[in-house]
Amino acid sequence: MATGNGSGWQVRHWTHRFFTITTITTGAGAFALQNFQYAAPTTVDDAIQALSEHGEQAKMLAGGTDIIVQLREGMCEADAVIDIKRIEELMQLEYSSRVGLQLGAGVPCWKIYQHAELSVAYPALVDATRIIGGWQIQSRASVGGNLCNASPAADTIPTLIAHNAVCHIAGPQGRRSLPVEQFCAAPGRNILQPGEILVALTFPPPLPKASSAYERFIPRNEMDIAAAGAASWVQLDDTGERIVKARIALGAVAPTPIFAQEASSWLVGQPVNDETFVEAGEIAKKVASPIDDMRGTREYRVHLVGVLTKRTLAKATHRAQAE
């Protein structure tokens, strides 16, 4: 069991500077957080300013469900932690069927799945927010944090890609926007430049006869990291029998979540049936380049891509037909 509190007491009696010494003498500091400065700016500009002052040593804090654990377990270090939850723009959730969804980077999962209209407009996103951790995690974990943390297995990222969401970034040089599929660079790394923060994600308005779904495979029933995940978005023609447009995205089977371009394009014009979904799954498998680990072998994960692509396409189609 972690001795965080035990060493914490010791640390409290020392100044920040002496922390390392304390750790060595007690030998129990491994799971204590090192001290840092804390700021809770109320504007994007102040956050950028604070971030610029501390450089690489500043970490943003949204729900803290990744960053607090990483700091405690020594996976990263920070001189300053900048809490974004008092910045209004980052905590806003605005939706209209005409404009679409504007989702502040710090909005927690529960706000998304509690929003009745979003389950209809962006079902894949809602599917993902419901299964991130348990209730306690969903009370805090944000979609922006899930994206910025850039885990290959992050559950919301494939859904953001399938929904064609755009990242809005602010930094010392001003603002810029880019599609979500260009945001992650490597496991745990994103394309944010020093001083930049993610402000919001925007989603295009829902289209008629269109819907989406997300599924992941985990070795347990709840509270686990995906061995593979797939998000599918489809738009059907008026008859509901043919696919007009599709976007498939995959998680946990490459260094970053990926857009399955070929499978998505192939689906255009295809009839709605099991053969189509199976074939799309076969094509999607080609872009998967997973690793072997305790959650599954490479082969197993590639197989899962086929299964999850087929299932999410079927579910998305079913939902679109029910509209």
């Binding site: 965080g4 804390y38 809770a40 804090l61 803290g64 469900t65 607090i68 654990v69 932690v81 809490d83 939850k85 529960w110 209730w135 306690q136 995690i137 009370s139 805090r140």
Partner: peptide
């Protein structure tokens, strides 16, 4: 809302 207090900073 239920939260894990180990994953919340006291300053929050």
């Amino acid at each position: 809302l239920p939260v894990n207090s180990c994953c919340v900073l006291a300053v929050e």
